[in-house]
């Protein structure tokens, strides 16, 4: 199983690549809605991409109130 740091790194890489944001501008504690400039529909798109990437199912209610990459990584890590 990958470490949480590795999971976090993969999330940041995927988000930077898909939303066309320089990777170096993303940090673990960023509010991803603000940093990526995304709305809720785009957040669902990100969730789907992450589920495919990590081959997991992550119910969206587990993301209630989650807006930073580090907490997102912890939620994903718990499903790996």
């Amino acid at each position: 199983m990958p470490t949480t740091d590795r999971t976090l790194d993969e999330i940041l890489n995927l988000a930077a690549s898909h939303f066309n944001v320089p990777r170096e501008k993303l940090t673990p504690d960023d509010d991803f809605f603000k940093t990526l400039g995304i709305d809720s529909l785009q957040a669902l798109d990100l969730l789907t991409r992450l589920e495919h990437h990590f081959r997991i199912e992550l119910p969206d209610y587990e993301l209630q109130g989650v807006s930073d990459f580090r907490t997102l990584a912890n939620r994903i890590q718990a499903r790996l």
Partner: peptide, 14 residues
């Protein structure tokens, strides 16, 4: 009302 008046980024999330 909560859905309609939600001006945040998450109206489609729980």
């Amino acid at each position: 009302r909560k859905f309609v008046e939600n001006e945040g980024p998450q109206p489609y999330l729980p």
